[in-house]
Every structure is written in structure tokens, then in C-alpha cells.
Write a protein that binds this DNA or RNA. Structure first.
Lengths: 248, 248
DNA sequence: CCCTCCAATTGCATGTCTCGCAATGGATAT
DNA sequence: ATATCCATTGCGAGACATGCAATTGGAGGG
């Protein structure tokens, strides 16, 4: 719609992979050097891009700033934080807080595992809905009448050998997640990691976020993970309660 | 330089204060409604803006993503993290990692205090150089020959009654910070908070970051803070060492 | 059920602003 | 000194964004 804006954003994306030179950027974005430079000037002016030295461009701090203010806006995050920490302390495993954005999961908070084996993931990262425990929970938040077509419209690539790609199977999983307020990921997203998630509701009972517990299979076998089921659900209930939800 | 890009970025900044409606955005940015909408479309297309419902615009997750990837890029952050945690655990106070960007301090990492009294600050926040301990350290990283004019060119507003606004006095502080690899902030930034900072050097000996310990005066008086001086310096030395710096 | 109001959206004509080119400047390596 | 690499600037053509005004769509009230 807006060429220069799009190109500007493309430049930011290109910079996400690390510092680049002007020509490289111009090339990856597919515009003339001089054009890239003028766009970068605007970005630099607003602090979105930073030049440590005259021939390197990096992402600037305006982004940090914006992103963190945006995170503040996710009110559930505020409320959830201490509960997540507590769950993290009690279990010693990685805890995530995720919300849905269109057809993706967005991780908005995280408590690191205390174990030496850290998992790869970061606040702000996105993941597919169909192969994550939090995704299944968040899909359970989609009104029942539109859930079917929502799931059908989803891209469902097989990311591991365990990924559920079949529409019917997945829909069934989501229905169970809705029933039990608990969903699982049996290595469907990353081969050697499994997760257990539950949902957080706001005042009106809508599922607005999901909390998950993740661990590499080597650290925690499946039954042990299930052992934390009630803890995770209880954590979500506490958060929901604080958001003003009264069960029935 | 690039009108639409600048306007697009202005929209993002406007959204930083929370969700807005189209007209509001158009007004605050000073463009016609339809223009704002078309820009927002581009932003939305790239995930920089999110529409939870049809008449509200919020910042989108592409920002979280970019910001966190940008943070990864700050390599000193990776290296420093565990040292910061250790310092945080040992002291129980708030620990910050900051770098300089032009004439500002940017906080790139933080370990929260274990005390109930939390301090306000967030990763990505910016602060002035002249009235923060980390700022003084980072200015000590400016080559000596240009330091004088750098300090002179700085805006030096008095943020509290203790802020040093005088050019000579400040320059002297910076010189001492350079000498001792330790700087102080005696309530110069926030009236009731004081800090102690030291610098981190890379392979070439350049100061690339600063680590600080902060506490409200009510929790820790000035002498007690000074008691942690050697700990903070030692932490920085460990980080520097890991970055490849060999002291002479 | 219809009407009103508010906010989002679209078509269109205008001219502003951006684009790519090619040449210049400055720094570093050979 | 020469070559190379990268950033920067002036300029003319025209693509692209802009603002206007009219339309659509949806929520709420009578």
C-alpha cells in the first residue's frame, strides 16, 4: 500500500539478522543504494536504526523501547508475572505466557528453567498454533461456531514426525483442550521437547492467554510432565481470578 | 527525508501509549484519516501493528520480535548475563547493563532487586548521560581528545536538586570515572535513588558497556552502597575478561 | 425494526515526493 | 600512487502518496 513505508520496514527486518552495510541492505531489500540510504536516514532519525560507525547499520533502541511499552500494554502479563515465577520456581522448568495474534502464537513472557539445559525461545518469538500446547489452548478460545473453519484455514506444516497435520485430529485435540482446559504438545513442534498448557480467562470468560510448562524429553518424561498438570491449571485459575473471572 | 516512512514511524510512536482508534491516530500524527489508514495497513501487513478488533490499533508482535533479536545482537549482553545475575543475587539490589547510543544511555539488561521495593526502569529504556552513574562511565569511554566537546555539547537539564549541570564539574567526574573505573550517581537522576557503576571493556580496551547497582536511599545508605564498589568492579572485570580483554 | 451516529473504507484527480542514475567524495587497502 | 569499497548528493522523470468527499458497515437507541 505504501511503498516507502514497506521498504523501510523491510530494512528493519533485514537488520534483524545483525549489522549490515548499506549495499547489502539495498540488495536484500531490492532497492537502489541511494534509496536505501534515504530510508535509513529516516529510520535513524527516529532511533529505529543505529550506526555504530559510518559503514554499519544496526537496529536502534527505539525498538526496544516500543516493544517493551507494547508488552506493558498486554495487561494479562502484569498480572501473570508473579504467578509464572512461582510456577517456575516450583517446577524448575521453563514457563511461557503466550497470546494469540491472528494465526500465530506470540510469547509475551517467559521464566527460564533453573536446569542447565536451557530451551531456545525468546519473548516476542512466534510459533504456529497447530503444533504447540499453548496454540491448542488459544484455539480453544475461538468461538465454537467458527472454530472449525478457523482450524481448516490454518496452515499445518509437519515440523516434526509427531506433528498433527490432520484437520479432524487437530480439531478433536482443540475440543478436548477446551473441555479440560489443558493441552499437550508431544514433540509436535520441536522433536525433543514436550509441553503442557492451560488457559487464562478474563472477566467475560474469554481465553486471553495460555500458560505452558516445557521441558526437553531428556529431563522430564511424559508422565512426569503430566504430574504437573494440576499445578499448571491452578496457576491459570489464579491468574484468571485476578483478572476478574469468577468460575460460573 | 522520507515522508511516509516518517509518518509510519510516528504512528508506531503514537501507539506506544496504548491502543488507539484511527481518527485519534490521524489526529496525533497530523495526517488525513485515509492516509493514516493506508499507512497502518502496511504496518499491519508486516505485523508491526495489530488490530484486536475493527476499530482499535495496537502495536504488533513484529516489534517484540525485532527488539529481542536486536538485543541478542548486543553480544556483551550474552556474556554479561550470568555475571549480572550473580551480582544481583549477592547484593539483592537492582543491577543494570547499559550501553551508549549517541547522547543517551540505553538499558539493555536488568536483574530485579529481591527486595519488595522495586525500581521503575525497563529494558530498552533510555536515560541521560550526565546524571547517571552508567552515563558517566560510558562517557569515560569517549576518547579523551573529544570528551571535552562531547560533554559541552550535551544537554544537561537538572532532573533533581542534586543533578550536576556544570560542564567543568561533570567533566571532572567523568575523568575520575575513567581513572577509577567507577562512577556514582548521588540522586542526580531520581531524587531518592543512588547508583554505583563500573565499565566493561572489549578486546581493544574500549568501554562498550556499563554495569550499575542501584537502590533507593531508604534501603541502602551511601556508605553501604560504596561497600559494594569492589564487587561491581570485579563483576565488570570478569565480563571484560570474557570479552577478551587482558589488562595490560 | 428502523434510524442515527460513528468509524472505517474506497475512487479519484492532483501534484508532491520518491526513485534510480551517475558522478563525487572519503577512507582504507594494495 | 592507484585501486577498491562504501557513503553521499544533484537532478529530472514520473510513480506514488495524499486529501477530499462519498460510501459502506456496524453498534446502539428509540
Amino acid at each position: 500500500m505504501s511503498q516507502s513505508l514497506q521498504r523501510g520496514l523491510a530494512l528493519l527486518n533485514a537488520l534483524a539478522d545483525g549489522a549490515r552495510t548499506l549495499d547489502q541492505l539495498a540488495e536484500t531489500v531490492g532497492v537502489h543504494k541511494s534509496t536505501a540510504m534515504r530510508l535509513l536516514r529516516s529510520l535513524e532519525g527516529e532511533g529505529f536504526v543505529h550506526r555504530p560507525d559510518s559503514h554499519r547499520y544496526k537496529l536502534g533502541s527505539a525498538l526496544f523501547d516500543l516493544a517493551n511499552r507494547a508488552l506493558d500494554d498486554v495487561e494479562v502479563r502484569e498480572v501473570a508475572r508473579e504467578h509464572l515465577r512461582e510456577l517456575g520456581n516450583r517446577t524448575g522448568h521453563t514457563v511461557h505466557l503466550a497470546v494469540r495474534e491472528r494465526d500465530q502464537v506470540v510469547y509475551v513472557d517467559k521464566v527460564d528453567s533453573t536446569r542447565p539445559v536451557r530451551m531456545y525461545s525468546r519473548i516476542g518469538a512466534r510459533a504456529p498454533l497447530h503444533c504447540t500446547a499453548v496454540g491448542k489452548i488459544l484455539m480453544a478460545g475461538v468461538p465454537e461456531e467458527s472454530r472449525r473453519e478457523f482450524v481448516a484455514a490454518l496452515d499445518r506444516p509437519a515440523l516434526t514426525t509427531h506433528t498433527l497435520t490432520d484437520e479432524r485430529t487437530l480439531l478433536e485435540e482443540v475440543r478436548r483442550a477446551a473441555d479440560e482446559n489443558c493441552a499437550l504438545d508431544r514433540g509436535e513442534h520441536e522433536e525433543f521437547v514436550h509441553c503442557l498448557a492451560s488457559g487464562v480467562r478474563d472477566t467475560r470468560g474469554t481465553i486471553v492467554a495460555a500458560v505452558s510448562l516445557s521441558a526437553p524429553k531428556v529431563l522430564l518424561d511424559f508422565d512426569d510432565l503430566l504430574g504437573w498438570r494440576d499445578e499448571v491449571i491452578a496457576t491459570c485459575e489464579r491468574i484468571s481470578a485476578e483478572l476478574g473471572w469468577r468460575s460460573e
